[in-house]
Design a binder for these strands. Structure first.
Length: 266
DNA sequence: ATTGCTTCCTGAGCGC
DNA sequence: TGCGCTCAGGAAGCAA
């Protein structure tokens, strides 16, 4: 479900957790992508949440000692509640000492939440590529990476070890807006298109964050609020584009790619 | 080193 | 109503 903008919006709404203290952790279902640590309550009890931040699509809760690493998978969400609302998809309930709750809810259980002593050597975070909203992500950086890669640009942009945070929707939208075929081989993209890609990636991510992310089916922020960027999508989930062109849907590496064969010529 | 296929899990939407 | 099928914002693990 969530790509960089959605994860960022969740993190933004989790800002209120700063300096709150964990009182108790209740595991309702431990069968997440990473099995929930049996002693999670012992590990987290009395820990102070110092800050919440995003790396790629991961969420990091920095504690006074150690940290929580979490990924939302396709349907994971964090919910902040003053009174616990029962839900069959609540997987982990974290009670805070001020009486409020932080809940990890996940229908499909593709996400996870683990406690780690340190971030160093983390197998997930270590593999992440560049943050697309930083200055280091520029046309020269991208062009250099593209020129060394022989895969389709669609797959290239989805690779979290190259650029951290893009997912299926934003890659599809970026390629359409840049009029680049998703089938184009990465190393055939020139410096001009590299720059257009960088500009469009930054623009779309920022605009989506501003609009609270894309709520396609069940994405909500930690206050259970929907985003509105789905209204700005030009091609994902559509049958025709604004020019009246029929949109094609193909499979690339098991994921659906929406594209316009007329606008996005190889 | 890369590629593509399968797997994890649950629900929604469709045709029949 | 119900069955069976396909699809879904992700990504690890595996064989080739």
């Amino acid at each position: 479900m969530p790509e960089l903008p959605e994860v960022q919006c969740v993190v933004n709404t989790l800002e209120v957790l700063k300096n709150k203290i964990i009182k108790e952790v209740i595991i309702l279902n431990n069968r997440l992508r990473e099995p929930v640590q049996e002693n999670l309550n012992t590990l987290l009890k009395n820990k102070i949440i110092k800050s919440v931040e995003r790396k790629g699509k991961y969420i990091l809760f920095e504690l006074d000692s150690g940290l929580i690493v979490s990924h939302l998978g396709m349907t994971g969400k964090f919910l902040l509640q003053n009174n616990l609302i029962e839900n069959k998809f609540n997987r982990i309930v974290i009670k805070l000492t001020d009486g409020t709750y932080l809940i990890y809810n996940d229908i499909r259980k593709f996400g996870f939440l683990t406690y780690e002593k340190e971030l160093k050597d983390n197998k997930y975070i270590n593999k992440l590529g560049i943050e697309p909203l930083t200055k280091l992500f520029n046309k020269d950086f991208l062009f250099k990476k593209l020129s060394k890669n022989k895969t389709a640009i669609k797959k290239f942009l989805l690779d979290q070890s190259i650029i951290a945070g893009l997912g299926n929707i934003y890659v599809i939208e970026v390629l359409y807006n840049c009029k680049i075929s998703p089938l184009k081989i990465a190393n055939t993209i020139d410096i001009i298109d590299s720059e257009r890609l960088v500009i469009e990636i930054k623009r779309i991510l920022k605009e989506s964050i501003d609009k609270g992310g894309s709520s396609i089916s069940d994405y909500r922020d930690a206050n259970d609020k929907e985003g509105s960027f789905q209204d700005s999508h030009n091609i994902y989930g559509k049958k025709i584009d604004t020019l009246g062109h029929t949109i094609e849907i193909i499979k690339q590496n098991g994921r659906s790619t929406y594209y316009c064969p007329i606008c996005q010529n190889i």
